[in-house]
Design a protein around this nucleic acid. Structure first.
Lengths: 69, 69
DNA sequence: ACCAAATGTCAAGCGTATTTTACAAAAAAA
DNA sequence: TTTTTTTGTAAAATACGCTTGACATTTGGT
């Protein structure tokens, strides 16, 4: 699962820590999402999308390899 | 977390089993989602949205009580 | 070159989404 | 009414998102 989190974060000039605080998770979680290590929960995805004022589909990129849960 | 899964499913005249098979999860998972027992993963949400040809935001309804992960 | 902030890695643990199996109730069909 | 399909419930096991804490590396400013 790829995401545009890092891209949007740099556009908005926000640090990992600031984003983590804003959506109420650990910095670790942000790092892992940016590095594509695992898939966010739906609610976290929604919070991040809200933070950047875009839709979930605009941030998270689904490819065929993500067919597993 | 409320969803419109049941509503869309009945519109499309699809059984829980058929939907479960289509998105590659157990029928239990569909039941639990329809009953709002827990929150779907992002990928599952995406697959369900794709199945019904709508956006994630059109199916899953986020309310303030979902502020926890 | 130095210092501090930002980013990254690793490993153990907790909570919860999802699976599995088996069975019960309701609805539809015959 | 009987049979089959669909929907629901319950409990135990597994998988994985997320946390915590400690430490390493990179980046930028002075």
């Amino acid at each position: 699962m790829q995401t545009k989190i890092q891209e949007l974060r740099k556009l908005k000039k926000v640090t990992q820590n600031e984003l983590a605080d804003a959506v109420n998770v650990t910095r670790q979680t942000i790092i892992s999402l940016e590095c594509g290590r695992y898939n966010a929960s739906l609610i976290l995805a929604h919070k991040i999308a809200q933070f950047f004022e875009v839709s979930i589909e605009e941030i998270f990129i689904f490819n065929q390899e993500d067919e597993n849960l």
